[in-house]
């Protein structure tokens, strides 16, 4: 068996060397988030808590920075020298940036994990194996987006007192202390979608899989889909805004195109494109 593995791996490697962009991905799950549409309502975050068995940690621990919000809506306020005013709540309101794991294709978290608990799946996802994680937390330190969260306590003991434990999603585990976790692009839903498609003997169509955040977003700001499927909605948005995977700098024909990826210059090659918010000057 191992000889077969060696040969397979090496032939993969050779193909990679011959063809720089070669990947053996079955899917490339990706997102496009239109910040023009985002109202900062946090429904996506709530949906994520419900879907992924995220523990609520309470105000005190949240203030200490020990929360578990896989999807957080970051709020930014304009600096006075950039047109904002001095008030705490500015009249034009804040800017919102919903951040979930960017599922980088060149993820900085992957090579640093000492036990290979985080790795890349053939779906183009950046997976986290809770059972393998030993909690060295290096991945979180090396995530420029700071999108990995650590179980500082056995949160499950207090988060779902009886009978709230009945609300837990049976499709995925409840994590104990000492384990790193992060947004999985609702991998359990992807699994269900792929299984259903295979049972029916067909390819996975666009719309078969939808993440909890995308499903919940009242303004449909979040679009989720497969980048390998050129007809999917998400591919079309990426293409329309001239954002491409595998680049650390996007050259656009029209400066008005709004698509960008966060911290693209670090060459992490994230799978989430944001469409810039347009405001009056």
């Amino acid at each position: 068996m191992s000889l077969k593995n060696i040969l397979e791996n090496w032939s993969d490697y050779r193909r990679t060397a011959e063809d720089g962009g070669h990947h053996d991905y079955e899917h490339m799950w990706a997102m496009a988030i239109d910040l023009n549409k985002c109202t900062g309502c946090n429904a996506c975050s709530v949906a994520c808590y419900a879907e992924n068995n995220l523990p609520t940690v309470g105000k005190k621990r949240m203030m200490k920075g020990q929360g578990m919000h896989w999807l957080r809506v970051e709020r930014y306020w304009d600096e006075p020298d950039m047109g904002g005013d001095e008030k705490e709540y500015q009249e034009r309101g804040g800017s919102f940036l919903p951040m979930m794991c960017q599922q980088c294709n060149a993820a900085p978290c992957e090579p640093v994990c000492p036990v290979a608990a985080t790795y890349h799946t053939p779906d183009g996802l950046n997976a986290q194996v809770y059972n393998r994680c030993i909690g060295s937390r290096y991945c979180s330190n090396n995530c420029p987006y700071r999108l990995r969260y650590f179980n500082f306590y056995s949160y499950y003991e207090e988060s779902w007192p009886e009978p709230l434990n009945m609300q837990l999603n049976p499709d995925l585990s409840v994590r104990d202390k000492g384990v790193m976790e992060k947004c999985t692009f609702c991998v359990q839903r992807i699994r269900v979608g792929k299984d259903a498609a295979r049972r029916e003997g067909r390819e996975v169509h666009d719309g078969d899989v939808i993440t909890a955040c995308a499903q919940t977003c009242p303004t449909e700001a979040i679009v989720f889909g497969d980048m390998m499927d050129k007809s999917s909605k998400v591919s079309k948005i990426w293409a329309a805004h001239e954002v491409e995977l595998g680049k650390h700098e996007q050259h656009k024909s029209d400066p008005d195109l709004r698509g960008y990826r966060v911290l693209e210059g670090l060459n992490t090659d994230p799978c989430v494109t944001y469409l810039e918010r347009v405001r009056e000057a």
Binding site: S2, N9, Y13, E110, A116, Y119, H120
Partner: peptide
């Protein structure tokens, strides 16, 4: 090298085996 070559999970995403 033998550990890496037989460890299926590790060399993903077109990185060197």
């Amino acid at each position: 090298a033998s550990a890496q070559a037989t460890f299926l999970v590790q060399p993903q995403g077109g990185k060197a085996v």
